[in-house]
C-alpha cells in the first residue's frame, strides 16, 4: 500500500476543489471553520425550520464537530479534537442543502448523509480522534460567535493553519472507512 497524496486546502472551499478530492487523500486544512456540536446543531436546524437567519454563515462554509476544553491564560484554545460525527447525522442533510460544503469530525456517517454529500458536491473530512493536543497547535484563532451560554457546546469561529485530516466521504460517493477495512481483510 502506498502513502496517500497530500493536498493543501483553504476555506472557503470552491466547488472545484471539493470535486477534486478523493476518499483517502490526506489534507492540510487552513482557514475559517465553525465548531458546532449536538445542541448547537439542534438550534441551527430549529432556526432554519422557522425561516430565521442562522447566527453563522452556512453557504460554502465548513463545520467542525468539536467542543474544545477551556483555554489556559495566554492560549488561543484548549484541546480541540473532533467529536463523533454520527450524532450530527440527523441535522447534516439540511445543513448541506443550506450550502455547507464540508463537515469535519471523526467516525462513520449514515447512508442518508453520504448520499447528501454526493448530491451537494460536499466532502466529509476525518480528523484522528483523541489527538486533541496536537490539533490545538493548528488553531491560530478562536472566538465564540453564538450560543455562548452552551459553554463547550457554543459555536466557535476557528481559524486553522494546516490541520491534518483525511478525506473520508468524497463527492463521488466513496467511503474511506469501508475501503480501508476491506483492504485490510482482503
Amino acid at each position: 500500500m502506498t502513502a496517500p497524496r497530500t493536498i493543501s486546502l483553504t476555506t472557503p472551499l470552491s466547488p472545484d476543489a471539493v470535486a477534486d478530492l478523493e476518499a483517502g487523500d490526506r489534507v492540510l486544512l487552513s482557514g475559517v471553520v465553525y465548531a458546532a456540536r449536538d445542541t448547537a446543531h439542534k438550534r441551527l436546524i430549529d432556526l432554519l425550520e422557522r425561516g430565521e437567519e442562522p447566527p453563522i454563515p452556512l453557504d460554502g462554509q465548513a463545520i467542525y464537530y468539536a467542543g474544545p476544553s477551556p483555554a489556559r491564560p495566554g492560549q488561543v484554545i484548549g484541546s480541540a479534537g473532533p467529536t463523533t460525527s454520527g450524532r450530527m447525522d440527523p441535522y447534516t442533510p439540511a445543513l448541506l442543502a443550506a450550502g455547507v460544503r464540508a463537515t469535519i469530525g471523526k467516525g462513520r456517517r449514515s447512508p442518508e448523509v453520504r448520499r447528501a454529500i454526493a448530491e451537494h458536491n460536499a466532502v466529509y473530512l476525518g480528523v484522528i480522534g483523541g489527538v486533541a493536543a496536537l490539533v490545538a497547535r493548528s488553531v491560530v484563532a478562536c472566538e465564540v460567535v453564538a450560543f455562548d451560554e452552551l459553554g463547550p457546546e457554543a459555536i466557535r469561529r476557528l481559524e486553522f493553519d494546516r490541520l491534518p485530516a483525511f478525506v473520508i466521504n468524497d463527492a463521488h460517493g466513496r467511503d474511506l472507512y469501508e475501503e480501508a477495512t476491506a483492504r485490510e481483510i482482503a
Binding site: 476544553s69 484541546s79 489527538v131 480501508a180
Partner: peptide
C-alpha cells in the same frame, strides 16, 4: 500500513505534547 503507523505516531506525539501540561490529551 503506512497510514496506521502515521496515526499511531500522531497519538504518541499527542501524548508528548499533553505531558507538557498545557493541553489535555483529549478535549473530552
Amino acid at each position: 500500513s503506512p497510514v496506521a503507523r502515521d496515526v499511531l505516531g500522531q497519538v504518541l506525539e499527542n501524548a508528548r505534547i499533553a505531558a507538557e501540561g498545557t493541553f489535555p490529551l483529549c478535549q473530552d
